[in-house]
């Protein structure tokens, strides 16, 4: 157990109902770096983040953050630990009944006793960093998808967390806001020196910002390494994913009975 690792997963198994989602996942997130977790859709990447945030409990194995076993903590300690973490949700998850300013101020208000003037300074600083200081009076319903995520990012870093978890930050963004987000994530990371976990399947963007990449498939870590080393990986499964080939070890077809006999059977029935 080295101090350089902020997040450690050891042999994590998790199943939802009958379906086994993780069959023993080991991974480490080094402090101060951007670690990407990638994999095809439906491999439970978001579930992995929820396991790290302590919202789901693994069937076996353990998740340690800063040396503390997340799932052994009392509810109170867990909430205290979460103050040191920020999470950016796929949809932004801004509180729809509060405006932009109050959304960013929310963590400050509930966790600190700062005077109003100080809260205002901090909020405006964070909003300036994401370029939305002018939008402070708007309601979340008046923002575009990219702006929502930027506000959510400002909210996630409001308390200056050590660790920030990004859940699919690039999904459904136009090229401009995608570029803005990529830049922001990198900038925030460098400026605040925090540790980031990015869960995504947008290969190009993710590889461009990540220091280290884990590729997950079939409930296990399929490959890991730096972006450069994965790019030249010989494993056909890895190269299919990294280079976005439609068919390969991950089949194009959903498992089905033989095509020919399936069609014949249909003909026989009618």
């Amino acid at each position: 157990m080295t101090d350089a690792m902020l997040v450690e997963l050891e042999g994590v198994r998790f199943s939802r109902g009958e379906k086994e989602i993780f069959r023993g996942v080991d991974l480490q997130v080094p402090r101060g770096k951007i670690t990407a977790i990638m994999g095809p859709s439906g491999t439970g990447k978001t579930t992995l983040l929820k396991l790290m945030g302590g919202q789901l409990t693994p069937d076996s194995g353990c998740v340690r953050i800063a040396g503390q076993n997340v799932h052994r903590l009392s509810r109170r300690d867990l909430f205290r630990l979460r103050r040191r973490m920020g999470m950016l949700f796929q949809s932004g998850a801004l509180f729809s009944d509060l405006d932009v300013f109050e959304n960013v101020a929310f963590p400050l208000r509930v966790h600190t006793d700062l005077p109003e003037a100080m809260i205002r300074d901090v909020v405006l600083m964070k909003l300036e960093a994401v370029g939305l200081r002018g939008a402070r009076g708007l309601m979340p319903s008046e923002l575009s998808g990219g702006m929502l995520r930027r506000v959510a990012l400002a909210r996630a870093v409001a308390l200056d967390p050590e660790l920030i978890l990004y859940d699919e930050p690039f999904v459904g963004q136009d090229p401009i806001s995608m570029g803005v987000l990529v830049q922001l994530i990198r900038k925030v990371n460098q400026a605040l020196g925090l540790t980031a976990v990015v869960v995504s399947h947008d290969i190009k963007e993710t590889l461009s910002i990540a220091d280290y990449v884990y590729v997950i498939s079939d409930g296990q870590v399929m490959a890991h390494g730096t972006p450069a080393s994965l790019d030249v990986d010989r494993d056909p499964r890895v190269s299919q994913f990294i280079h976005g080939e439609p068919d390969g070890p991950v089949p194009f077809h959903y498992p089905a009975p033989d095509y020919f006999s399936d069609i014949l059977a249909e003909g026989m029935r009618s």
Binding site: F89, L94, F106, P107
Partner: peptide, 15 residues
């Protein structure tokens, strides 16, 4: 609020 992950994000903020 649940569907748009507002409840989850509230939990993650520690509320």
């Amino acid at each position: 609020m649940k569907a748009t992950e507002q409840l989850t994000s509230m939990e993650m903020i520690g509320v």
